[in-house]
Amino acid sequence: METKIDFTLNGQQVSVTTDPLRRLLDVIREDFGLTGTKEGCGEGECGACSVLKDGKIITTCMVPIGAVGGSDIVTIDGLKETEQGKTIIEAFADGGAVQCGFCIPGMVMAAEDLLRSNPHPSEDEIRKGISGNICRCTGYDLIVESIALASERGDGLW
């Protein structure tokens, strides 16, 4: 039973006609080719598939596309075109936050979500802000430092 679902994706009005139980993650990757959003655990634990839905961070592996009608979705492929996204990504590169890179799209989304509500977070607040994102390479310290660097460089952006 396919259903037509309209929503906003990275600022564009889009429409898909599909099984409403398909995961938002799969629609983003397969139907729109936005493969920056990654599938890690598939059960909401790792944060690799994070996007912003109506301005709030969510894990797309747990959301059926049928729940997305009328929503505003921003993925890493949309965020990277914005000043805020560029600032975070450059800080991650300069700060050495990236090793294998698989968790990074989710980490950048979590950083954006955090900085929107708290533009100058403390180290503890940064660690809480990325507590839903798992990285198996870095040990987190350089990611935390890079988010602090993004906050400093992007002063006034959020």
Partner: peptide, 26 residues
Amino acid sequence: SGGTDLMVQYRRGIGVTPKFPWPIMI
């Protein structure tokens, strides 16, 4: 509703749509 229990409980793997044994309403 949020899907955080059901979508995980009935998941079938990477890139695959969950399959439920009963009709669903969102």
